[in-house]
């Protein structure tokens, strides 16, 4: 969250309220909500929009080198400005997209590191494998497990015709376990050559705009974590993590872990 707060050019001290708003923003993705909850989500959503509109006004008056300034100054090919609605859409997507999915991606990759024997040792020995590790975690845990799309024409798949203008739920997480594309799909394989060809960021024209940032954050997180700590393990005998119920997003409610300082390992080896 702090990373996107800075990139957008918002005050860093606002990152906690932004985190709150993005947490609320994704609630409708996952839950069947009560009317009271729907009201709450709508009110908080408006508060986020008001905040972003004020921030965009500020950038118009005092342009800086940041994403929000770039957004308010951007023009179409014909020279016209984006509408307020369009600018808000971009700003909201940037704030929300950069928070929830990346945070869950890091947590679920940690869960994978702990649950797959031998992976941590190999990453300590060959830090260059962190890149494939990250891609395998994105493939197997896809923080955005599915998204809705509308068909623009009749589509035939597996002898079923989906008519034009149908709302379909594309299941990225299921495609990522297609054994025709990924042999032994359930295995976290640090030598999988096509690991990054997963659908965790969707594909082509709808490919995630923030994918390079998410990849950077995931890779840096594990480079630093593995430099500083070792022996990652669950904290308790059971119930170390649980998922937030939901369809579109895959989120951890909590994850309890323990680890040891990596320095101690080096001292022992030296002795």
């Amino acid at each position: 969250m702090s990373v996107m707060t800075v990139l957008l050019g918002l005050p860093l001290e606002d990152h906690e309220i932004l985190k709150h708003w993005t947490d609320v923003w994704v609630l409708p993705f996952s839950h069947a909500m009560t009317p009271e909850q729907e009201m709450y989500v709508a009110k908080e959503g408006i508060a986020l929009q008001q905040y972003l509109l004020a921030a965009m006004d500020e950038k118009r008056q005092n342009p800086k080198e940041d994403l929000l300034t770039l957004l308010v100054q951007s023009r179409r090919e014909d020279g016209s400005e984006l509408t307020t609605h369009e600018m808000l859409g971009f700003a909201e997507q940037a704030v929300v997209g950069a928070n929830e999915t990346t945070q869950n991606g890091i947590a679920m990759a940690m869960q994978m590191l702990i649950e797959n024997p031998g992976i941590e040792e190999r990453l300590h020995d060959e830090p260059a494998k962190i890149r494939t590790f990250v891609e395998e975690c994105l493939r197997l845990q896809s923080p955005t497990a599915g998204m809705y799309r509308t068909t623009t024409c009749d589509v035939e798949m597996h002898a079923v015709t989906i008519p034009a203008e149908s709302v379909v739920h594309l299941r990225f997480a299921a495609g990522n376990r297609d054994e025709r594309h990924f042999p032994e799909p359930g295995k976290l394989d640090l030598d999988r050559r096509n690991a990054a060809s997963h659908l965790a960021f969707s594909q082509a024209v709808h490919h995630c705009l923030g994918a390079p940032l998410a990849r950077l954050e995931l890779n840096l997180s594990f480079q630093i974590l593995l430099e500083r700590r070792k022996n990652f393990r669950f904290a308790y005998a059971e119930e170390n993590y649980d998922h937030v119920p939901g369809l579109a997003l895959r989120q951890l409610e909590y994850l309890w872990i323990k680890s040891d300082p990596a320095e101690a390992a080096m001292d022992t080896n030296a002795a």
């Binding site: 260059a128 494998k129 890149r131 494939t132 891609e135 050559r193 096509n194 690991a195 990054a196 060809s197 997963h198 659908l199 960021f201 594909q203 082509a204 024209v205 490919h207 994918a211 390079p212 990849r215």
Partner: peptide, 16 residues
């Protein structure tokens, strides 16, 4: 390996 991951990511991200 870095370039293989980059190339694969690029192929996935290409709009067309």
């Amino acid at each position: 390996e870095d370039l293989v991951v980059d190339a694969t990511s690029a192929a996935n991200a290409c709009p067309v």
